[in-house]
Design a protein around this nucleic acid. Structure first.
Lengths: 158, 158
DNA sequence: CGTTATCTGATATAATATAACACCTCAAGA
DNA sequence: TCTTGAGGTGTTATATTATATCAGATAACG
């Protein structure tokens, strides 16, 4: 299914699967998925929504782990840098990655009413074409759309 | 010219033209382009790059205007809300708008080397099509691409 | 002219993010 | 085996970005 962000699904297995595949890729590419990094990815996967760095720190603190801001920011830098998570700029928040396709750039659909976020995607070339007109070489794309998700279109304030 | 962000141009006239057209539109739509708002728009136009709210406050302070954070944030809210400026999420910064076409969403090309920013654009429908698959209604789009501008492609670090 | 909405000025504080340094650990090379 | 260096963690302190709130001013409009 290309986009399950706004749909129910079996959550415990999806967390396990994603964690396992992250572990596999780290082993393959000699990346160190240390305990803090792994736990933070797991938290993001469990929540299945965007969390602020300080939300994550609260969780870590509750579990007795080290919880100074750099702990979260460093782990998030690793996770985002390696494609295991994304930063949602509009929210200054972080969310686990649910699709990894090198040909597509992630696109996020953020509901202003219920704050749910779905990860969609767009062909990388679609934006690259625009950039090319300006002689610009894209290294990182931010595609975020804010609006109303299917569940909120009827009920939310205008 | 569709995109002059990475090119030289006559700057004093472009500031004047943009200000005049902002004034015209405000008169037309009963929007209040007050002195602070006008001055901040002018600063953004003069700089022709993205400024942080506190950069703007420094400028205001130097000119003897009120310069508490809310002064800038309120004016920026007005300017962004009415399309006279944009917020660059990747930089937590603000830039004057250089194109206004209701059919197109602004797209920003941010050079990671020299930090220049060009405003390009993309058909609104291009992203809306993706969103529609998810039953999502877009109200606001953020399209930002980070990379290297033409002037930096050769010289910048990899 | 009076009323109401909008805007400004100011203080305080919240939320987000980074700098810097000591220490640890583990693998690669001498 | 030693040692050395890169990358990771823990911690303190601080920087940067943004908002809540309330009192007073000004404009819009009947």
């Amino acid at each position: 299914m290309p986009n399950e962000g706004f749909h129910r699904h079996d959550h415990s297995t999806c967390v396990e699967t994603a964690l396992a595949s992250a572990e596999a890729r780290c082993a393959e590419e000699r990346l160190r998925l240390t305990p803090v990094r792994r736990r933070i990815l797991e938290i993001l996967l469990e929540e299945h929504r965007a969390l602020g760095a300080y939300d994550i720190l609260d969780r870590l603190r509750a579990e007795g782990m080290a919880a100074q801001p750099p702990v979260a920011y460093r782990a998030l830098e690793f996770l985002v840098g390696n494609g295991f998570a994304h930063r949602i700029e509009r929210r200054s928040a972080y969310i686990a990655c649910t699709e990894q396709d090198p040909d597509h750039a992630p696109m996020f659909l953020i509901c202003r009413s219920c704050d749910s976020i779905a990860e969609s995607s767009i062909k990388r070339t679609d934006l690259a074409r625009e950039a090319k007109h300006a002689g610009f070489v894209i290294e990182h794309q931010v595609l975020e759309a804010e609006g109303l998700c299917p569940a909120c279109t009827d009920t939310a304030a205008p």
